[in-house]
Design a binder for these strands. Structure first.
Length: 255
DNA sequence: ATGACTCCCAGTGGGAGA
């Protein structure tokens, strides 16, 4: 099975690129973030015509997540149960043998801000819920835009970014807590080229200069770890004419 | 350098993203 995640920064703008990419890569499951579409505007017909079932949970202007699958999506859950949230950030579903949780983690803006405090509360709630989900569904994948660069090697200029949003000790501790549940960072399960990023700022020719962060991740549970055979970042769509600022991450599982 | 770009909703600018 091929599982992928992609923050598309507006599905209305990026739908043609998503359709092209599905055709080229043929993933079994694709988690989308920042669709920025209310559910009545979700392009389910176009995606169904491309061979994908959809589960989606959106709002206008910001956030919005979706799961696309070549096979049925069952037991769909939107947002974190028991965590009251006005923002559409999580969609989970069962896809064949997998429990898939697609998430758009809060940005957090700046350490000490209200948005950072929200990010911390959200991360606490996610951690508790994922822990419970693992008991119920041992074959679990948590993937999406984490807005956390787990280590200095995930940052193009770790000195400049030290303590900045995405790189704070608090965010990194939360990422480690998720790994502590037995989840594995699929990308780091394999040897990778240095300076591998999943996001590049639109400004300052950052993509051309390869100045980015690795903040989009695929975590697989301990039960799935032996089946994991590859994980890559596909920079191809970032070279499109009107790209998202994020590139898709792809994991392959021998299932 | 208090920026740079892109998207959205707005409405001839401003917030948010990361």
């Amino acid at each position: 099975m091929k599982i992928a995640t992609w923050n598309v920064n507006s599905l209305a703008v990026r739908l043609p690129q998503v359709l092209d990419w599905l055709q080229a890569q043929q993933p079994d499951v694709l988690a989308l973030q920042e669709t920025k579409l209310t559910d009545d505007k979700f392009p389910a017909e176009a995606l169904q015509a491309a061979g994908y079932r959809c589960a989606f949970f959106g709002q206008r202007t910001y956030n919005g997540v979706a799961l696309l699958s070549r096979h049925a999506l069952d037991a769909v859950q939107c947002n974190i149960p028991g965590f009251d949230d006005e923002q559409a950030r999580v969609i989970a579903a069962t896809a064949g043998p997998l429990r898939v949780i697609g998430a758009y983690f809060p940005n957090g803006q700046a350490p000490g801000s209200d948005k950072f405090a929200y990010k911390m509360r959200w991360l606490d709630a996610l951690q508790a819920w994922v822990s419970a989900q693992l008991q119920q569904s041992p074959r679990l994948v948590l993937l999406g835009d984490f807005n956390i660069a787990p280590e200095d090697r995930d940052v193009y200029d770790p000195v400049a970014w030290a303590g900045q949003i995405h790189c704070t000790p608090e965010e990194r501790a939360h990422f480690q807590s998720l790994l502590g549940l037995g989840l594995a960072d699929a990308f780091r399960a394999f040897e990778q080229p240095p300076k591998s990023w999943s996001w590049w700022d639109y400004r300052n020719l950052a993509f051309r200069k390869n100045q980015g962060l690795r903040i989009d991740h695929i975590l697989v549970s301990a039960a799935l770890r032996p089946a994991l055979t590859a994980c890559t970042i596909d920079k191809t769509p970032r070279k499109n004419e009107r790209p998202s600022d994020h590139a898709p991450v792809i994991a392959e599982l021998a299932l």
